Simulated scan of single mutants.
Amino acid sequence: MDFSFSKADEDFRMRVRDFFEHEYPREIVEKMARGHSPSKADYQTSEHALAAKGWLAVNWPKADGGTGWTANQKYIFDEELERAGALNVVPMGLLYVGPVIYTFGTEEQKKRWLPGILDSTTFWAQGYSEPGSGSDLASLQCAAVREGDEYVVNGTKIWTSLGQHADWIFCLLRSDNSGKKQEGITFLCIDMATPGITVHPIITIDGKHSLNSVTFENVRVPIENRIGEEGKGWTYANYLLGHERTSYAHVAGKRKQLEDIRTTAEQTDTGATRLIDDPAFRVKLAELEARLDALELTVLRTLATVSEGGAPGNESSILKVIATELAQDITELGMETFGPYAMPAFPDSTAPLWTDNTPLPSSAAPAVARYLGARAQSIYGGSNEIQKNILAKRVLGLP
């Protein structure tokens, strides 16, 4: 197989690379390189720069405000964004609810919500998981009771990414308990300024605040905020989850991490030899590089399916599993490589082991937080054990 890109694709790559090198906000790149958490203003600054170029909704159809790019161009764009160290877009609006709205929403809903997503003036959160309903999402019990032209919502959502920044939240809610658990689930979009909504921060083991729990107490939601039919939310959720699971790959970001690990290993002595000369270390690095190449090919196949008008489908579970397991293994090798160099850079460290005069590898700063944060990747978005069951039953046809 020929894995090279065409001249037109490579010319496109150079245009994208030039943008990130000369037009994209440098302060964002520098902040991310230091391992700092981006603020809402940082996300908006980044996305406004992309929107001004017409490059924000990469995967949307051109008719809905997207780029109209080919699968190769989309892949190249993501590759150059991560190569530059720029911020990835906030996925909840652009990658998750946006496609649901333009696929299943009414014309009025498209006019109401899509422009704010496209110009990054409206932030969205995802209300799926609940205490006790994570991987078994169909067991959710946060309730939406119909009262005339409104739904009254009561319950709790948890692990709500960037919920502290959100203007709107899209939720799966239990509107009927009489049938199978996958039935009676309704998809509602809710204004976060509605009375009765409270956001509670969750500080994770990496010292960051990106997750939250959200409680709803008699929150009244107009019926026109419902996507599609009442009780059909599971259908829309499965469509969304396909897009969500294809967004985990981050091939270029992983490749950059491996390059940083290799560079550090070439400069790090382990007694009489460099770490890169340790045969056991070289085997680990080579294995991760081979797995990353395999992930890249899987992503390209999936993007080709989407570009031809298809949905990612159950095969997106393949991406979720291999991408998250690879992310964890890369960060483990990173910890092995950076070792004590990374320890004083952890934001909660109060007793650094190194003085200010000690040279630290530039990539060591976020190593601990990245390692700790990656522990959750095989759990959120549907645990990998659940994804393997999906693959066994729906892709391989096993009983």
Rank of each mutant, 00 (worst) to 15 (best):
E332N: 06
P352S: 12
H165T: 10
P61S: 03
G116D: 05
N212T: 06
R291F: 04
S383R: 09
A143N: 07
R274F: 01
E230D: 11
E82L: 08
E230T: 04
A365H: 03
R282M: 12
A71Q: 02
G207H: 06
A8Y: 09
T156L: 14
Y24N: 07
P91F: 06
T235P: 00
D278Q: 12
P61M: 03
E244D: 12
K110I: 10
R226P: 04
Q44R: 11
G196N: 05
R245A: 07
Y128V: 15
P222S: 03
T186Y: 05
S210I: 10
G228V: 02
H250G: 01
T106F: 09
E79W: 07
W234R: 08
Q126W: 05
E108C: 04
N357C: 07
A71P: 02
P38M: 12
E82P: 00
L211F: 15
W234F: 13
K53C: 15
D42G: 15
S317K: 09
N212M: 04
T67M: 11
L295I: 13
V395C: 15
I227Q: 05
I390Y: 11
K256M: 04
Y151E: 01
E79G: 13
A311G: 13
N72S: 15
T122P: 00
F187Q: 01
S4H: 14
T246G: 09
W124T: 00
E259S: 01
I28A: 08
R26V: 12
I117L: 04
V152N: 13
R83Y: 14
P344M: 09
T268E: 10
S247G: 01
R375S: 13
L137F: 13
L295Q: 08
D206I: 05
G148K: 05
Y239L: 14
D356H: 08
G373D: 09
T156S: 05
S316A: 15
G134K: 10
G196V: 00
L118C: 07
E308F: 03
V90N: 14
A265S: 12
T337G: 15
T67Q: 13
V153M: 14
A252P: 04
E183L: 03
A86Y: 06
E229C: 06
M32D: 02
A252Q: 04
R112V: 01
A57R: 05
E259W: 03
D18P: 00
V100M: 14
V29S: 05
E308Q: 14
